[in-house]
Computed example of a mutant assay.
Amino acid sequence: MKYVFLYLIIINYIAFSMFHLDKKRARKNMKRISEKNLLTICAFGGTFGAWLAMKNFNHKTSKTSFKIPFYIIVVIQTVILFLVFRR
């Protein structure tokens, strides 16, 4: 269980950092991190870090084509957590 907790800390730190880097690149008109890569890091457990970055940096918060898949991932992960810890 402690390895799962460590994994979640690391993956959420990576997600937060990727969203922050993408926001910096957006401001400087540099090459961006693809939405596919951002959503992939979320799917691997980085949704909380991504959500924090979205709120802190106001990044991807108004883009519906990103928010819909993001919140679908959140719902799926919530259901999985509920099913795992329901026992």
Rank of each mutant, 00 (worst) to 15 (best):
Q77F: 09
F82A: 14
A53C: 14
Y71L: 06
L52F: 11
I76W: 00
K31N: 05
Y7S: 03
T40E: 08
I33R: 05
I80S: 01
S17D: 05
F57G: 00
L81Q: 14
W51F: 15
V84G: 00
K23S: 08
K36H: 01
I33S: 06
I41W: 00
S17L: 07
T61A: 02
R86N: 03
A15I: 01
F82S: 14
Q77P: 04
K63Q: 05
N29A: 06
R25P: 08
F57P: 02
G45A: 08
M54E: 06
D22E: 12
M54G: 09
F57S: 00
A43L: 13
F57Y: 04
D22L: 12
I9D: 11
V75Q: 04
F19K: 07
K23A: 12
K63P: 02
K67P: 10
F66N: 11
K36Y: 00
S62F: 09
A43E: 13
V75S: 09
E35Q: 10
F82T: 13
L83R: 01
I14R: 10
R27Q: 05
I11F: 06
Y7G: 05
K67T: 11
K67Y: 08
M1N: 04
R86K: 13
L6A: 15
I73D: 03
L8S: 07
F16E: 08
D22Y: 10
I14E: 12
N56W: 11
S62D: 14
F48T: 14
M54C: 12
L81W: 14
R27V: 05
M30F: 05
K55H: 12
K63R: 06
I14V: 15
L39G: 13
V84W: 01
F85S: 03
R27G: 08
F57N: 01
N12T: 08
N12Y: 09
R32E: 10
F19N: 03
C42Q: 00
N37L: 07
K55G: 08
T61D: 01
L52C: 15
F44Q: 06
N12L: 09
T61R: 03
F48V: 15
R87V: 02
F70V: 10
N58I: 00
T61W: 04
Y3K: 14
F5P: 06
T61P: 00
M18T: 12
N12M: 08
Y3R: 12
L21M: 07
K2T: 14
E35S: 08
